[in-house]
Amino acid sequence: MKFWRVPLDAIEVEVTQGVVHIIEDRCKGCGFCIVYCPRDVLEESPHFNAKGYHTPRVKKEGACVNCHYCETICPDLAIYSVEAQPASS
């Protein structure tokens, strides 16, 4: 992403990273999470789940900022994110 103005402390601010979890069997393929993810992390998977729906899948590993929006808009309790463990230094 390109910014026309960058905050002075941008380098110091740690952006939370999230890991998306998908419970495939609960998904009904509405696509809400895919369309409304603010970081465009998800895409429709060509794969069908047990009920015949296309579930979402992560297309940009590491792009999730753990905002939980997918978790709240999902009508099926089928997706959620947890904070990624910071890489051990």
Partner: peptide
């Protein structure tokens, strides 16, 4: 779960909220 609501139905979201 899964519940009875149709794909794309908004009740589930209101319920989660």
């Amino acid at each position: 779960i899964p519940h009875i609501w149709c794909p794309g139905c908004g009740v589930g979201t209101a319920f989660s909220s």
